[in-house]
């Protein structure tokens, strides 16, 4: 009763480091295939650039402090770390990164003029400098623009350094997006956080009970499929629906489709839970023929790698499974 379950709560600061390490690992694993998240190393957006002026040699020296994160990843890190700090009962659970990603993406791509970066244009230069540096350092010296020339020679070394580091952050990570995404993330999780809480796993609000609600919904709408899945082929819904539900389907579809689904999910005035379960149920029914023909292995593989599908049709099918007041 003493050892494992509790010692994690008594470790204090050590646990903080562990959580941050976990967040770091997962932030880097959030849609690694999308440039929006992983940044583009060739533009070196992911690097913090510091400029040193070597007066003696009349020579500009760039020191690149490589950050392991792109600016967008950095913002996601902040959000997750702060959430973990503010919610000591849950802290950070793997998968939260996946839920945050669509929110942050949407806010970041908001065309709102406040997010424009024109202000920072001159200070883009250090980035460009760095870019050209990668090609050829000497080449760059020849191409140095008037703006950067002025900048470098009009400010002191330390001041330049400060300016550069603070403004680079502003220029491509609009602080609004980070704050807005944080707010919505907290809001969204307030409805779903029980799914992340191990202590509630077996309670009426925890993930297991949500999964059995899905099972009941399927039984109600398609008894034959339910029987085949859960009785004949013994595919425990936990094997696939655990991820569907905890991640709000973010890992089951590509990013664009996921945003499409979330539009419906988040616009339900009754809250997203019931809609989520209906969509999950519709996902099962849409592949019922394949499921009914399959055994344990093929069914589980199918449901863990859900085939790409027409999302509008899926959402339509889900809406047919009952109005907002049903079940």
């Amino acid at each position: 009763m003493v050892a494992d379950a509790t010692n994690s709560n008594t470790r204090g600061p050590l646990q903080d480091t562990e959580i941050i390490e976990q967040i770091d690992r997962d932030v880097k694993r959030t849609h690694p295939d999308m440039q929006f998240f992983n940044g583009d190393s060739s533009i070196a957006e992911s690097n913090r650039v510091s400029v040193y002026l070597d007066i003696k040699h009349n020579f500009l020296k760039l020191v690149v402090l490589t950050s392991r994160f792109s600016l967008h990843q950095e913002a996601m890190r902040h959000i997750l770390i702060i959430f973990a700090k503010l919610n000591p009962g849950i802290r950070y659970v793997q998968g939260m990164n996946e839920i945050l990603a669509p929110l942050f993406y949407v806010f970041k791509n908001d065309p709102e003029p406040n997010n424009a970066v024109w202000l920072m244009k001159p200070l883009l230069c250090p980035l460009l400098l760095y870019k050209s540096l990668r090609l050829s350092y000497t080449n760059y010296i020849g191409n140095m623009s008037a703006v950067i020339h002025d900048l470098i020679y009009s400010v002191t070394f330390v001041h330049a350094l400060k300016l550069v580091s603070s403004d680079i952050r502003k220029l491509s990570a609009s602080e609004h997006a980070e704050a807005d995404a944080f707010f919505c993330f907290v809001e969204l999780l307030s409805g779903f956080r029980d799914n992340f809480c191990q202590k509630l796993d077996n309670s009426v609000v925890g993930i297991r009970s949500t999964i059995s609600k899905l099972s009941e919904l399927l039984k109600k709408h398609d008894g034959e499929l339910w029987r085949h899945l859960e009785v004949t082929t013994k595919v425990n819904p936990q094997f696939y629906a655990f991820r569907w539900i905890t991640l709000l389907l973010t890992q089951e579809f590509n990013f664009a489709n996921c945003l499409h689904i979330w539009d419906t999910l988040l616009s339900d005035p009754e809250g997203p839970q019931e809609t989520l379960l209906r969509i999950c149920c519709a996902m099962l029914i849409l592949v019922r023929r394949r499921l009914l023909a399959g055994d344990f292995t093929s069914n589980l593989k199918l449901l863990q790698n859900y085939p790409s599908t027409n999302i509008s049709h899926l959402l339509y099918a889900a809406s047919k499974l009952g109005g907002p007041s049903a079940s």
């Binding site: 976990q22 694993r29 959030t30 690694p32 793997q94 996946e98 094997f239």
Partner: peptide
């Protein structure tokens, strides 16, 4: 977490490896 379980699995079953694979939530089956 992060020791490379999923990549061991994908290497074994599909001969694939990806430097930044997604984190595994729950359980994956192959």
């Amino acid at each position: 977490s992060g020791v490379g379980k999923s990549n061991i699995l994908s290497r074994f079953t599909r001969n694939e490896f990806s430097l930044d694979s997604k984190s595994t939530i729950g359980v994956e089956f192959a």
